[in-house]
């Protein structure tokens, strides 16, 4: 199987292998490797003081990706760990909550190690990639690539890519003082040789009842909200409405991304008894900015510099409908 994998990789990348000193080529290979290879490993995610270990199993059988993430650290909640299954564009989460197992369905996301998009065009527009030294991560040889932002609207990334398989072994998010904000790293990794997919089914705890979490997101396309001046490189990737518990009106959520970093903009009408908020705060690597515009509470959240959330929070405006539109 290993040979087959190598053969596939060689046939895919062999033609351009002379370009191995091109950092964008290495990143592209990394993006594809995470989606096409079969592997199992344990990685640790760290953000501020918090850290979590996760076991990941990934298989691509005949073009369909199957991934299982098992949360290994389960804090106070004994018993069954949380499990995340994804196939195609669906993510299903099983998470213990008191005497229940809550099932949550989500849209697909790029989860580690498939963090990089396969289409790097938008990333290329906002970052410069540099080849760094070679290090060892989880017993594997890794080529370091630095993604340095072209402006102050995003942080920089350091990426460790397996020199043999291309797989993303480690990734750090650094602020403009070069301090690590977030880190995600394989501690152990092995390639899978079997085609057995029996692992792709949740461990059932018969003592718990399984309940679906009520859907909170409704997809919406049209909006009258516009952000006049988005920070360079960011584009709107989605717009949804949320029913947040305890809030009477649904909240608009608009998501912007530069291909790797992302920002959410939340807009809700200020209702009676609500305390409007303004200002900025930082939680871990997440910058939050609140503003009040035309009677609406605007909140911007993202793992991006303060300047980015501030600019978006200030540039929101409501595009008035013309009189003929009622």
């Amino acid at each position: 199987m290993l040979r087959v994998v190598c053969a596939v990789l060689l046939s895919v990348f062999g033609l351009t292998s002379f370009a191995a000193d091109d950092p964008w080529f290495v990143l592209e290979k990394t993006a594809y490797a995470a989606r096409e290879l079969n592997y199992q490993g344990v990685f640790v995610y760290q953000n501020g003081k918090q850290s979590r270990s996760v076991q990941v199993t990934h298989m691509n059988s005949t073009g369909q990706e199957m991934t299982r993430n098992v949360m290994l650290d389960n804090s106070a909640q004994a018993g069954q760990p949380s499990e995340v299954y994804s196939r195609g564009n669906d993510i299903v989460i099983f998470r213990p909550q008191n005497q229940k197992m809550v099932i949550e369905k989500r849209r697909g996301q790029n989860l580690f190690p498939a963090m990089l998009p396969t289409d790097l065009q938008s990333v290329k527009a906002s970052y410069t990639a540099r080849i760094g030294p070679v290090e060892r991560i989880a017993g594997r040889e890794a080529q370091i690539i630095e993604l340095v932002p072209n402006d102050t609207f995003r942080y920089s990334y350091k990426i460790w890519a397996d020199t043999e398989f291309g797989l993303l072994l480690k990734m750090t998010l650094l602020d403009n003082k070069n301090q690590t904000l977030e880190q995600i790293e394989f501690n152990q990794l092995s390639m899978l040789n079997s085609q057995d997919t029996n692992w792709f089914q949740p461990k059932i705890d018969a003592s718990k009842s399984y309940v679906m979490e009520d859907a909170t997101a409704v997809n919406h396309v049209n909006t009258n909200w516009i952000v006049a001046e988005l920070p360079t490189g960011y584009v709107k990737v989605d717009h949804i409405t949320l029913n947040v518990p305890g809030k009477t009106a649904p909240v608009d959520q608009i998501i912007f991304s530069d291909g790797i970093a992302s920002v959410s903009l939340f807009i809700e009408p200020i209702t009676k008894g609500m305390h409007p908020k303004m200002g900025h705060m930082l939680i871990g690597s997440t910058n939050i900015c609140a503003n009040v515009i035309e009677g609406y509470q605007v909140t911007v959240v993202g793992e991006v510099p303060e300047a980015t959330v501030m600019q978006i929070a200030k540039a929101v405006s409501f595009k008035k409908q013309t009189a003929s539109n009622k």
């Binding site: 995610y45 953000n47 918090q50 979590r52 996760v54 993430n69 949360m71 989500r106 849209r107 996301q109 790029n110 989860l111 580690f112 963090m115 998009p117 998010l173 977030e182 995600i184 909170t216 997101a217 990737v237 989605d238 949804i240 949320l242 947040v244 518990p245 909240v251 959520q253 998501i255 991304s257 790797i260 992302s262 959410s264 939340f266 305390h275 409007p276 908020k277 303004m278 200002g279 900025h280 705060m281 939680i283 871990g284 690597s285 997440t286 939050i288 609140a290 009040v292 909140t299 959240v301 993202g302 793992e303």
Partner: peptide, 28 residues
């Protein structure tokens, strides 16, 4: 306008992490 205090809109952080194209912070 009340200054943003220590009150963190938890639902917003969750919603942001759930909808972001890259779900790094998801695990936390």
């Amino acid at each position: 306008p009340v200054e943003i205090a220590q009150s963190v809109p938890t639902e917003y952080l969750q919603a942001h992490q759930a909808a972001a194209p890259n779900g790094n912070a998801y695990y936390i």
